[in-house]
């Protein structure tokens, strides 16, 4: 009986110990690091560091990938995440953030932007322009091309003649001329 009691007491005492397995002496991402002067775990790599895959990413930025349905699909998904909040789902510059007061994201459906090649949009995503910040840390190079391709497709979509639509999406009573899309949907 005494032994059992001691055993139970010992278990209780052990259970009351600090659970050091929970908080191990290692740094996890975003923790504060006493080891470094600025206290930041995620230290910047040494200048000149090339991370795994950096060369591929850089190469992806230079070369336009072949246009495929998968690329457009990916572009649409990424566009809806990163661009549509300001530029709007159809690219008229009427996204929710713009409606809440972000100053005038341009519509893609202007002569100026229609004339721009896909590479221009890749460059804007990479570097930012005007009030738009760079999205280089959020959108991978390959995805920038996908978004650019989707923007070009959006531009086309607002100008295509109704008789050139494939039969399965052609409206029964197609309007004679498409909207010019210059000022909004």
């Amino acid at each position: 009986m005494t032994r059992l009691g001691l055993l139970i007491l010992a278990i209780l005492l052990v259970a009351a110990c600090e659970q050091e397995m929970n908080e191990q002496p290692k740094y996890e991402v975003y923790e504060t690091a006493d080891l470094f002067p600025d206290g930041i775990v995620n230290q910047k790599p040494q200048p000149g560091t090339i991370a795994l895959g950096d060369l591929e990413r850089r190469a992806a930025l230079d070369e336009r990938p072949p246009l495929t349905p998968a690329l457009l699909q990916r572009g649409r998904e990424r566009f809806d995440i990163y661009c549509a909040p300001c530029h709007g789902a159809a690219g008229y510059g009427d996204g929710m953030i713009a409606r809440r007061g972000f100053p005038d994201p341009p519509s893609y459906h202007t002569d100026r932007l229609r004339a721009r090649p896909a590479r221009y949009f890749v460059q804007v995503i990479t570097q930012g322009v005007g009030d738009m910040y760079s999205y280089a840390t959020r959108v991978e190079p390959a995805d920038r091309w996908a978004i650019a391709a989707y923007i070009k497709a959006l531009q086309l979509s607002q100008r295509v003649k109704a008789d050139r639509l494939p039969p399965d999406v052609k409206p029964a009573a197609a309007p004679a001329s498409p909207t010019d899309g210059e000022d909004g949907p």
Partner: peptide
Amino acid sequence: LGIDCRYCHAAVEVSASAGLPPTET
């Protein structure tokens, strides 16, 4: 506002950590 999770948690599809947005975001 309808902002997608990934707008801020940009690493969630490719990394262990979802990514806490930097002040830049």
